Amino acid sequence: MPSMKLDHLGGLTAEQFLEEYWQKKPLLIRQAFPGFGDVMSPDELAGLACEEDAQSRLVLENSGKWQVENGPFEEARFASLPKKGWSLLVQGVNHFLEDGQELLGKFDFIPTARLDDLMVSYAPDGGGVGPHFDSYDVFLLQGYGQRTWRVSEQQDLELVEGAPLRILKRFDTLDEWLLEPGDMLYLPPRLAHWGIAVGPCMTWSVGFRAPSAQELGSQFLGYMQEHMKLEGIYADPDLELQLHPAEISDQMVDKVEAMLNAIRWNKADIASFLGEYLTEPKSHIVFDPPRRMTLAKFREQFAKKDLRLDLRSQMLTRENQVFMNGEKVSVEGGLDLLRTLADHRMLPASDALPDALVELLWPWYSAGYLHFD
């Protein structure tokens, strides 16, 4: 509720946070999540970085030279790392860790459509990824250990030439804070910042999507290409003799312009595109279908057990449309229940669901998008 004061926002209401801080200025919250440091160990993070379906990176720095290695990694790689000068980063930890998904639920005052994922990083003493800026909003929650964060309002965003990361060439510190386990720092987009481990530490980053206009335009045109159908073929019964046969004439340009002007889109097209685009699983994500279950057995199980979204599933709604992992479905009944599933990532057990809703949920369960508790 907008009027509720949230401890993990330092006693601010969600409405106050959005009005005063979101995309405007940083906010430090001491003990936003007390006792958070023991959620995951460095060894568990390293183990996750060895998994094929996890996105992981090692960032190494030596005498101002930066290097990036992409996972999955062999266990032996971690044994050969130096004592300092590196960071391990793993994206999409919420796809593997129930606690990670529950953590993301604490930020539901931001629309799910804006949420990207949960990244967890580990660094030995002095480690980090250097001074940089991001194009998206981020909440930096300190887990195990301590990390110093420096921020700058500098307009000079010149980057180190040839670096594999967006490392700032110069950094002018405006503020500096030492974060303890459970402390959290919110940073708006394009604010220069620099995190430095004080002893070995882990940081949990809740990031939000901020696609560029170029990316949205390219993806939308691809969507339109798949969904539009233009009638007719090029015809020129009024063709005129040309002095230069190899010249593209104004007559031809005008005819093609008239044909392409038939391309139209409206708000409904944009909404459908966003629903499919924002829920489309990343290329490395693979779902694990359960053992085959008949529709009757599925209904029987649902009468006893809650149904939950798989940790990797993405679900959004708009009006009578439901988007699940890049697929769109228009529904006539049961919309409130589907919104509950999308909002809370679970649907309580029930023996009174409409047949149409059960018949919709069953193939999603069969595809591995849903699981019973």
Score class of each variant (00 low, 15 high):
residue 188 P to H: 13
residue 117 D to G: 10
residue 225 Q to L: 09
residue 115 L to P: 06
residue 199 G to F: 04
residue 158 E to C: 02
residue 206 V to T: 05
residue 202 M to H: 03
residue 144 Y to H: 15
residue 132 H to M: 06
residue 128 G to A: 11
residue 221 L to Q: 00
residue 151 V to L: 11
residue 195 G to M: 08
residue 157 L to M: 13
residue 141 L to D: 07
residue 126 G to P: 02
residue 188 P to Q: 15
residue 216 L to Y: 02
residue 220 F to H: 09
residue 147 R to L: 08
residue 119 M to F: 04
residue 183 D to E: 03
residue 116 D to P: 05
residue 221 L to T: 10
residue 191 L to F: 05
residue 122 Y to L: 10
residue 162 G to N: 07
residue 163 A to G: 07
residue 182 G to P: 12
residue 164 P to V: 05
residue 163 A to P: 04
residue 159 L to D: 07
residue 165 L to G: 08
residue 192 A to R: 08
residue 150 R to M: 08
residue 224 M to R: 14
residue 157 L to Y: 06
residue 196 I to Y: 06
residue 131 P to F: 09
residue 155 Q to S: 13
residue 160 V to L: 14
residue 218 S to N: 11
residue 223 Y to H: 12
residue 202 M to Q: 12
residue 179 L to S: 12
residue 115 L to A: 07
residue 158 E to R: 14
residue 138 V to F: 00
residue 116 D to K: 07
residue 121 S to D: 08
residue 208 F to M: 10
residue 223 Y to I: 06
residue 223 Y to Q: 03
residue 190 R to N: 13
residue 193 H to R: 06
residue 122 Y to E: 02
residue 166 R to H: 13
residue 205 S to E: 00
residue 155 Q to T: 14
residue 216 L to C: 11
residue 119 M to C: 07
residue 188 P to F: 12
residue 173 T to Y: 02
residue 211 P to T: 05
residue 211 P to C: 02
residue 126 G to M: 01
residue 115 L to T: 13
residue 152 S to R: 09
residue 113 A to G: 11
residue 180 E to N: 14
residue 185 L to N: 09
residue 227 H to F: 01
residue 186 Y to C: 14
residue 210 A to I: 01
residue 183 D to V: 09
residue 177 W to L: 07
residue 114 R to P: 02
residue 181 P to Q: 05
residue 163 A to L: 08
residue 165 L to F: 04
residue 161 E to D: 09
residue 140 L to I: 10
residue 150 R to H: 12
residue 140 L to E: 00
residue 146 Q to H: 13
residue 127 G to F: 04
residue 196 I to D: 06
residue 154 Q to M: 04
residue 209 R to Q: 10
residue 171 F to P: 04
residue 113 A to E: 05
residue 135 S to G: 13
residue 209 R to P: 03
residue 174 L to I: 14
residue 183 D to F: 04
residue 120 V to L: 04
residue 208 F to G: 11
residue 175 D to Y: 11
residue 121 S to A: 15
residue 209 R to Y: 01
